[in-house]
Design a protein around this nucleic acid. Sequence first.
DNA 1: TGTAAAAACACACTATAATGTGATTTTGAA
DNA 2: TTCAAAATCACATTATAGTGTGTTTTTACA
Lengths: 76, 76
Amino acid sequence: MTAIQQIGRIIQERRDHMRITQKQLADMADIGINTLYKIETGQANPTFESLQRITDILGLEITLQVKKIKDLDATS
Amino acid sequence: MTAIQQIGRIIQERRDHMRITQKQLADMADIGINTLYKIETGQANPTFESLQRITDILGLEITLQVKKIKDLDATS
DNA sequence: TGTAAAAACACACTATAATGTGATTTTGAA
DNA sequence: TTCAAAATCACATTATAGTGTGTTTTTACA
């Protein structure tokens, strides 16, 4: 599972939770439905702006943070 | 200050802190120096992959999180 | 202060993200 | 079960991110 695929899933889950369709979210974010579909399904390498427009609508924000140390014994 | 500009500044600060040049970081991340320059100076709308390659080298990670409520009285 | 490395910038070209259209498949509700 | 909406997918086109080259400006150090 790549990072892009994870982000796609988060977006899809968040949209489902808001009970809106891909078309509705795409229109609200002012991006093509095809673009949103590809991002949700992990097939895209979206631009920052596309990602930001979507996350803005969904009440999410994109942040940069210092990477946590990987714990080899972590269960998840 | 846009989000893209903020990210550029974070990348630049992090790189300076690591004491490496744009050229060195660009080579390590396997992206063009021009691309890195534009991202650092807030002139780019980078793809997720470009951003990720850079942040990987810098020990940063891109995350999506629920937006915090804006406090109108916040000092910063 | 010279001057060499680094950064900033312009510009043209290439690769690819974004889009629109239309078809197919899946989903869920009557 | 229909049947319509939603999602998935293919494909061609358009817009633009990424790149390379060369030039100018800035930075920092001898």
